[in-house]
Simulated assay, not measured.
Amino acid sequence: MKTIIKKAKFRSFILKNLCIFAASLLLAGCEKEAPLSDQSIVDLGAVKREQTELDKWILETFTLPYGIEVEYRWDRNVAQNGSWIYPPKIANVKSVLKTIKTLWIALYTSPEIGGEKFLLGKNPIKIYMYGGKNLDGSGMELLDNPEATTNEIFLYNVNEFDPRNEDKVFVLMRSVHHQFAKHLMVLFPYNRNKFLSISRNKYLESTKPIAGAVGAMQGRQAFGLASYANRRGFFTFHSLLSAEKDFAEIISAKLTHTPKEILTALIEAKTPYNAGPDSDLQLVYNENARQAYKELVEKQAFVEEYFSKEIKLSLNYLQLISIKQMKAFIKQE
């Protein structure tokens, strides 16, 4: 019995000393290690970019006066999934930015509209620029990034932009006005349920049903007022995608089309398809046209009233100034 106790004590003694020895080795190793650096690992990996003349111009033209950052360098992390977009040509960046400065910022801040301080606190925080088209999975070119917040504006087709080309300017401004309209809709909420109830059952879940109708259309054909949409109670193809896009499209379409063109779209809406000798089908077409016209007129009036009450501007007057500025811009370029 005594022998067993002695053996147990001996094992305990050995184990205790081994633990002390291991601990001393660990402490010795720690003393030899270099002290921790105060510099962040993130900072060590960062590459400082020198400010270019373009960066300075952006700072003075957009960031300092309006609080808008512009990111024209490639950042795949903020591109929507499945898009074909790629970096923009640096040579075209300033041309695109000068265009939106003239036809968007100068529009809202003109003395006869909102004044120089109108956009303060209302602007998106950042603008992202890309070289190519913004195509979705159905092959339809979109006006915006559906994954973005309304504090961001995404500019596409930078590489093909030409300020002397009316079609290119038109598409750019359709996109900018659409995205800024969505931003205003968040800053100054509208009665979504009331607006949604006007064309409730007509909105599509995806672009698939209309991608074929748009087909190989380019520029103004793809983004302008469309007979296909008019006859269903909408101004454009993109209006069909959701109530939010429909609302924003009414603003964007009016700011890039003349009053005469808008009137033509309304006439198109109330013009029924011709059913030929089928009188029963003709009655259906007549009712569809009546309903399409009613919805389009009602939605346009809704948005105009919203703009007047919430934004404190006349959308119709803004339209006249916008069209005038676009024509003058194209002419001088």
Score class of each variant (00 low, 15 high):
residue 6 K to S: 11
residue 13 F to W: 12
residue 17 N to W: 15
residue 19 C to F: 13
residue 23 A to D: 12
residue 28 A to H: 10
residue 28 A to Q: 11
residue 29 G to H: 14
residue 32 K to N: 09
residue 35 P to E: 07
residue 39 Q to V: 11
residue 39 Q to E: 13
residue 41 I to L: 10
residue 44 L to H: 13
residue 53 E to A: 13
residue 57 W to L: 06
residue 61 T to V: 14
residue 62 F to L: 13
residue 62 F to I: 10
residue 63 T to N: 15
residue 71 E to H: 13
residue 73 R to E: 07
residue 74 W to C: 07
residue 77 N to Q: 04
residue 85 I to N: 11
residue 86 Y to M: 15
residue 86 Y to D: 15
residue 91 A to Y: 10
residue 93 V to C: 09
residue 99 T to C: 03
residue 99 T to W: 01
residue 100 I to A: 09
residue 101 K to S: 09
residue 102 T to D: 14
residue 103 L to E: 15
residue 105 I to Y: 03
residue 106 A to L: 06
residue 108 Y to S: 02
residue 111 P to C: 01
residue 112 E to S: 02
residue 115 G to L: 13
residue 118 F to Q: 00
residue 119 L to Q: 01
residue 119 L to P: 00
residue 121 G to E: 09
residue 123 N to Q: 08
residue 124 P to A: 03
residue 126 K to N: 03
residue 127 I to W: 10
residue 128 Y to H: 07
residue 131 G to E: 09
residue 131 G to D: 08
residue 138 S to F: 13
residue 141 E to R: 09
residue 146 P to I: 05
residue 147 E to V: 00
residue 147 E to L: 00
residue 156 Y to T: 14
residue 159 N to I: 09
residue 160 E to K: 03
residue 162 D to M: 08
residue 169 V to I: 11
residue 171 V to Y: 10
residue 171 V to N: 13
residue 173 M to K: 15
residue 177 H to G: 00
residue 179 Q to N: 00
residue 182 K to M: 01
residue 184 L to A: 00
residue 185 M to G: 00
residue 186 V to W: 06
residue 187 L to M: 03
residue 189 P to N: 06
residue 192 R to H: 04
residue 193 N to L: 08
residue 193 N to P: 05
residue 195 F to T: 03
residue 195 F to P: 02
residue 196 L to F: 08
residue 197 S to K: 10
residue 201 N to D: 07
residue 201 N to W: 06
residue 203 Y to L: 04
residue 204 L to E: 05
residue 210 I to F: 06
residue 212 G to A: 01
residue 214 V to I: 14
residue 221 Q to K: 06
residue 228 Y to V: 14
residue 229 A to C: 03
residue 230 N to Y: 04
residue 230 N to T: 00
residue 230 N to A: 05
residue 231 R to D: 02
residue 231 R to M: 04
residue 232 R to W: 10
residue 234 F to W: 00
residue 234 F to V: 00
residue 235 F to T: 08
residue 240 L to A: 14
residue 242 S to A: 06
residue 247 F to G: 05
residue 253 A to H: 02
residue 254 K to F: 04
residue 254 K to S: 13
residue 257 H to F: 12
residue 258 T to S: 11
residue 262 I to W: 08
residue 265 A to K: 07
residue 270 K to M: 01
residue 272 P to F: 02
residue 273 Y to K: 08
residue 275 A to Q: 03
residue 276 G to Y: 04
residue 277 P to H: 01
residue 280 D to E: 12
residue 281 L to C: 01
residue 283 L to I: 03
residue 283 L to N: 04
residue 289 A to S: 03
residue 291 Q to K: 08
residue 296 L to T: 08
residue 299 K to T: 03
residue 299 K to S: 04
residue 300 Q to A: 04
residue 300 Q to K: 05
residue 302 F to W: 02
residue 304 E to A: 10
residue 308 S to H: 11
residue 309 K to Y: 02
residue 311 I to V: 05
residue 311 I to T: 05
residue 312 K to G: 05
residue 312 K to T: 08
residue 312 K to Q: 13
residue 317 Y to H: 14
residue 320 L to F: 12
residue 321 I to H: 11
residue 323 I to Q: 12
residue 326 M to K: 11
residue 328 A to L: 11
residue 329 F to E: 00
residue 332 Q to C: 01
